[in-house]
Amino acid sequence: MGRVVLVTGVSRDLGRRFARQLAESPGVDRVIGVDVTPPRGDMGKVSFVRADIRNPVIAKVIVREHVDTVVHMSVIASTGGPGGRAALKELNVIGTMQLLAACQQAPDLEHLVIKSSTAVYGASHRDPAMFTEGMNATRTPTSGYSKQVAEVEGYVRGFARRRPDVRVTTLRMASIVGPVITTPMTTYFKLPVIPTVIGFNPRMQFLHEHDALGSLEHATLNDVPGTFNIAGDGIIMMSQAVRRIGRPGLPMPAFAVSTIGSTMRQARMADFSREQVAYLTYGRGVDTTLMRTRFGYEPRFTTAEAFADFGASITPGVIGVDRVRHAEEIIAGALGGSRG
C-alpha cells in the first residue's frame, strides 16, 4: 500500500503544483489537497477537500483518510489577496496550531513536512554572514512574518517532542523566485522602479521554484528528519539583482521604503512589510552544507541562475542587457572607427 499525503495550502500556486507533482510520483497512493478556497488551476489526480485547517474538521479528514504524511505549506508571507496582517497571522500561527493538534490525534501519521522560511533568522546588522541551522535570530523578531515563522517552528518542535514516532522535517526556504510563482520578492522585483535602502547593499539568496518543489518532494519521500536550510548556491547583492533585470533602482531612506511599501500594499501592487525592509537593508545568507550532506538534495539552480530565470520571464527594464551591449558596441565602434 502506498502513501497517503495531505497537502495544505493548495489554493496557492506552489501548493497546487506540489500536490500535482507528488500525485504523479510512484510511491504515493493518494494526495489530498486541503484549503479554504478551491485551487484555480488543474489539480490532476489530487483530490481536493475544502476545509479550514483552523477547524477540527481537518482532524476527521486525517483520521478517516488514513493520512500518513502531512505536508504543511500554509505558512505564507502574504495572502496575495484580501485580508490584512491579522488574518495572515491567524492563518499561519493558529492554523499550524490546529493542524498540529489534529496531527497529534492521528494514529496513522508517520511523517510531517513543514515548509518554513529563512525569515526565521530575521535580518539585522549583527547577523553572521551565513546562518547555519543551529543558529537563532540575532534579535528575536517581535512582529510580522519572522515572528510567525518562529512561532510555527516552535509549535512544530513541541509536536516533535510529543510524537517522537513521527518524522518531522522542517525546510527553511530562501526567497522563492521563478517564472511562474508570485511571492513578495517577485512582486518587488517586478516594480518598474525598485526602491532600495540608501547606503545598504544587502546580500540575498534565492531558491528556484523548481528546487522548492523538488526539495519538498525529497523531504516527503525520503527519511530525512531535521531542520534544513534550502537555498541556491552563492549570493547576489541587491545592486546586482536590480541591474541584472535592467530596472532602475531608487535609493531612499529605510523609513521611506516602508512607507512606500505600505502604500503599495493598499494599492495591491506590492507588499513589503517592516521585516522585509530589514531584509532589504541588511540581507541574509544561509549555509546549505546540511542540505547537501544530511538532507541529500542538490538544487538545480544556483541563486544567480534562479534569479536569471526569473528575470528572463519578466519584461526587461529600461537598462536591459541588450541595450547596454548595444551602447557599448556603438561607443567602441565610434571611437575605433574614427582612428586614421
Binding site: 554572514a129 551565513m130 546580500r203 549570493i235 541584472r244 537598462i319 542587457v321 561607443i331 575605433g336
Partner: peptide, 28 residues
C-alpha cells in the same frame, strides 16, 4: 589604447548589467 578601451567598456558593461561575482560575504 584600443584593446584597453574595449576592456574598459566591457568592464563598464559588466558593472551596469550586474554581471560580476561576489563571494558569500560580499567581497567584490
Amino acid at each position: 589604447w584600443e584593446p584597453r578601451l574595449a576592456e574598459f567598456l566591457a568592464f563598464l558593461r559588466r558593472r551596469v548589467t550586474g554581471d560580476y561575482v561576489v563571494d558569500e560575504y560580499g567581497l567584490d
